[in-house]
Simulated assay, not measured.
Amino acid sequence: MSDPQIALKRWFHEKTAPHGAKKALADATGYTPTQISRMRNLETDDPKKRQEIPLDMIEKAARFFDSLPPGFEGMTQWLDHHVDSEKTVPVVGYVGAGAEAHFYALSDGELDRVPAPENAGPETVAVEIRGESLGPLFARWLVHYDEIRSPITSDLINQLCVVGLPDDRVLVKKVRNSKSKTPGLYDLLSNAEDPIFDVPIAWAAKVKSMVPR
């Protein structure tokens, strides 16, 4: 393995080392945790246990961790989701223990305003992660979303979403079709908590981006 590849692997290994980071990166990028484990493996040349890091994953990981890897220092367009300091979006709630977003009855519906990601639209909002329900790495990160689907649509299955339930809980979870195959019910998955099985979903929105605050 060449020196640049070793430096890249070490960067990737360090970024995905905290508890929950590998699973969260998998949810955000579409790669499997097994593939990510192979990409971060520094100890073997066995092709069954090691995988080179493809360019699209390097870019996605740089955006996700808001950090440029060795050899890619010039790719500043990858950072901060091209945050536009002139444009902001509202923070509408906090994601706390149990991944429940608690919304407060403010007159303008906002708790704060934060810089908007490049892909922000007129409906984009943010929630702030409080606690470690998505893993300790993501405490106080911002989760951006829009395009609320009610009812949920099939393209959100197996995606990390902000999910509203009929009992008014709002969760950040990966949505999966119910194992029981009961029509209208879904399973909700996360890193640090047990799955929630067989629940109806009132609305859902795919997570657009997650950035440190």
Rank of each mutant, 00 (worst) to 15 (best):
A17D: 15
W141I: 11
T153S: 14
R130D: 14
G109T: 01
L25M: 08
L156M: 08
H13M: 12
L156S: 04
A97L: 12
V170L: 13
Y145F: 15
K174V: 12
Q159F: 03
I129R: 04
D3L: 15
K15G: 11
P166V: 03
P47H: 02
E132A: 13
E52V: 11
K87A: 05
S133A: 15
R38Y: 07
A61S: 06
K181C: 09
K22Q: 09
P122E: 14
Q35I: 09
V207P: 04
V170Y: 11
F12G: 02
Y186V: 03
I196D: 04
L55D: 05
E147V: 11
H82F: 07
K206G: 12
Y104A: 09
W11K: 00
G20M: 07
I6W: 08
H13I: 05
G71R: 03
D167A: 06
K173T: 01
D84Q: 02
I6C: 08
L188Y: 03
P117W: 01
A205R: 03
A205N: 03
P18V: 02
L68T: 04
G135C: 04
H13F: 12
E128M: 13
G98I: 00
D66C: 06
K208V: 15
A24S: 11
T34I: 14
K48C: 08
Q5Y: 09
P166Y: 07
A28V: 06
D45Y: 12
E110V: 12
P90W: 00
G121S: 14
R113L: 03
E14R: 13
A28H: 08
D46I: 01
S133M: 12
R140F: 14
